[in-house]
Design a protein around this nucleic acid. Sequence first.
DNA 1: GTTGAGCGTT
Length: 184
Amino acid sequence: MSNRRRHTGSRANPDPSTCLGVFGLSLYTTERDLREVFSRYGPLAGVNVVYDQRTGRSRGFAFVYFERLEDSKEAMERANGMELDGRRIRVDYSITKRPHTPTPGIYMGRPTHNGGGGGGGSSSRRGRDSYYDRGYDRYDRYDEYDYRYSRRRSPSPYYSRYRSRSRSRSYSPRKCEEIWRTET
DNA sequence: GTTGAGCGTT
């Protein structure tokens, strides 16, 4: 038993939980559809289809919350590989348990429109607009998984995107965010 | 009905 692997967060073999990830969905499968299917195995605590921010359409995967672990186990076994709305869906225990926690120090949410939009001056104080001030960090401590990844990869999505634009120098994460806000 | 493989910030 020297196999002490902290497989929490392993994508290949997630730990059983009441939260199931459902992938390969049709874009037209709704939460209602999922609820119909998965409620067969037991009472649900919630269903959450992930939508694309830009288009507002489904991204083709969802998360189903059961109330009992035994039910989620059964649902995982039975619903995995089943056909739904013409698609073979994949069901697994979810790695993440809830939506992403923002990277500390950088506002990762959508930019709130600053009333006008005349000059390029987004000079309003942003500190008060962070997720922390909205109380998001009270839900739980940082999710080990995405926190680690966001630190290893880059401080923010904007960073990796705009950082490479300048070959002579690197933009700061803050600067990248500003560029992103300007162009969006 | 723009697929693919996708682990989430409405």
